[in-house]
Deep mutational scan, measured.
Amino acid sequence: DDLEQFAKQFKQRRIKLGFTQADVGLALGTLYGNVFSQTTICRFEALQLSFKNMCKLKPLLNKWLEEAD
C-alpha cells in the first residue's frame, strides 16, 4: 500500500537526516502554518491515524522531506 510504504520511507529518511518527530511537527508549522504534535507524527509513522488524516499529512511530509534534503 502506497501510504504504508511512504510512512516507512519517511521514518527512515527522517532518522537518517537526524530529525526527531517533534522537529518535523515544528518544521511543518514553520513551513505551512500547521504545527503538528510529536504524537501526530508518531501515529503517522505507525499508521495509526485515520486514512483521511494520513492522506492529508502525506503531501506535507513529502514536501518537508524535499526541503530537508
Rank of each mutant, 00 (worst) to 15 (best):
G25L: 01
L47F: 09
N53H: 12
K16G: 11
K8S: 03
P59R: 08
A22L: 06
L31R: 14
L26Q: 14
A27D: 05
L49A: 07
A22E: 11
L3R: 00
P59N: 06
L31V: 10
K11V: 01
N62I: 10
A27S: 09
W64G: 02
I15S: 11
G18R: 06
R43C: 07
A7V: 12
L28M: 05
G18P: 00
C42H: 13
G18T: 01
N34K: 14
L31M: 11
L49N: 05
Q48T: 10
P59L: 08
L61V: 06
K58R: 14
A22F: 09
G25T: 08
L3M: 14
G25F: 00
L31I: 14
K16T: 14
K8L: 14
K56V: 10
R43G: 02
G33V: 00
S37V: 04
D69N: 10
A22H: 15
Q38P: 13
T30C: 08
A46R: 09
C55M: 13
G33F: 02
S50D: 12
V24P: 04
K11A: 09
V24K: 01
K8G: 05
W64A: 03
T39I: 11
Q12E: 13
M54F: 00
G29S: 15
K56P: 01
F19D: 08
L31A: 09
G25N: 03
A7R: 04
K8W: 07
A68R: 09
N53G: 11
K11M: 08
G29T: 13
R43P: 00
K63G: 12
F51M: 10
Q21Y: 11
L3Q: 07
D23A: 12
S37H: 12
F44A: 00
Q21E: 12
G33C: 01
K63L: 06
K63R: 13
A22I: 08
K56W: 06
N62G: 14
G18W: 00
T39V: 09
F10E: 03
L31T: 11
R14C: 04
W64D: 10
G33A: 08
S50R: 08
K56I: 12
S50H: 05
T40H: 02
L49F: 01
F51Y: 09
Y32Q: 12
T30V: 13
Q21S: 09
D2E: 13
L49R: 08
K63S: 08
S37A: 09
N53K: 15
L65C: 01
L49G: 07
Q38M: 06
D69S: 05
R14S: 02
Y32V: 05
Y32N: 01
A68S: 12
F19C: 11
G25K: 11
R13K: 12
L65S: 05
L60S: 05
G25D: 05
L60R: 06
G29F: 08
G33Q: 09
L31Y: 08
L47K: 11
P59E: 08
C42N: 15
F10N: 03
Y32M: 04
T20W: 01
N62C: 10
E66W: 02
L3G: 03
V35L: 07
F36I: 15
M54K: 00
T40D: 07
K56G: 06
Q48N: 11
S37W: 02
F10L: 01
L65T: 03
L47C: 14
K8M: 12
W64P: 03
P59F: 09
L57R: 03
R13W: 04
N62R: 12
L47D: 04
E66Y: 04
R43D: 07
L65W: 09
N53M: 15
L61M: 06
K8R: 13
L57W: 07
F36E: 11
A7W: 01
R43S: 03
R13C: 06
K63I: 04
F36W: 03
G25M: 03
L47E: 04
Q5H: 09
E67A: 13
L28K: 04
Q48G: 09
L31F: 13
G29Y: 12
L31C: 10
F51I: 06
Q12M: 07
F36K: 08
K11R: 12
Y32P: 04
G25V: 02
Q12V: 09
N34F: 05
L26A: 13
Q12W: 11
D23R: 10
R43Q: 11
S50E: 10
F10C: 08
F44G: 02
Q38G: 13
K16Q: 13
K11Y: 03
A7Y: 06
R43V: 04
T20H: 04
A46N: 05
Y32E: 08
Y32K: 05
S37G: 07
V35E: 15
K16S: 08
L49P: 04
K63Y: 06
L65Q: 03
F51Q: 15
S50Q: 15
T39H: 14
T40N: 03
I15W: 03
C55W: 10
D69E: 10
G25E: 03
R43W: 01
L47S: 09
E45T: 03
E45S: 04
W64V: 09
D23W: 02
R13S: 05
C55I: 13
D23S: 03
Q12N: 06
F19Y: 08
V35M: 09
C55Q: 15
L26Y: 14
F10K: 08
Q9R: 10
K8I: 15
F44M: 03
F10T: 06
D23I: 03
Q12S: 11
A27E: 08
G29V: 07
P59G: 11
M54V: 03
L65E: 07
A68Q: 05
F19E: 06
L47R: 14
C42P: 09
S37R: 06
S50T: 07
L26T: 06
T20M: 04
T39L: 10
F51D: 11
K58A: 08
V35P: 12
C55T: 10
V24C: 06
Q38E: 15
V35H: 11
A27Q: 15
W64I: 03
Q38A: 11
I15V: 08
N62W: 03
R14G: 01
G29R: 14
A22Y: 07
A7F: 04
S37E: 08
L3D: 04
C55L: 11
R13A: 08
G18L: 00
G18H: 03
L28A: 04
V24D: 01
G18E: 01
F44R: 00
Y32L: 14
F19S: 01
Y32I: 02
N34D: 12
K63T: 08
L47H: 14
N53I: 11
N53T: 14
F51K: 15
T39K: 13
E45F: 05
S37T: 08
L31E: 12
Q12Y: 11
V35F: 10
Q12R: 11
D23T: 01
N34Q: 11
V35N: 05
D69L: 07
G29H: 11
F51N: 13
Y32H: 12
L28V: 03
A7M: 03
K56A: 10
N53Q: 13
L49Q: 01
E66D: 15
T39C: 13
G29W: 07
Y32D: 08
D69G: 15
A68M: 15
E66N: 15
T39D: 14
I15G: 02
L3P: 03
K58C: 15
K56R: 14
F51S: 13
K63C: 11
F19Q: 03
F10S: 01
G25A: 15
L47N: 15
L57M: 09
L3Y: 09
F44L: 01
L60A: 06
G33T: 08
Q38L: 06
G33W: 03
D23Y: 02
T20S: 12
F36D: 06
L26G: 10
L61I: 04
T30F: 06
G25Q: 04
R14V: 03
T20A: 05
F51G: 11
L31P: 06
A27K: 14
T30D: 12
N62H: 15
Q38T: 14
C55F: 15
A22M: 05
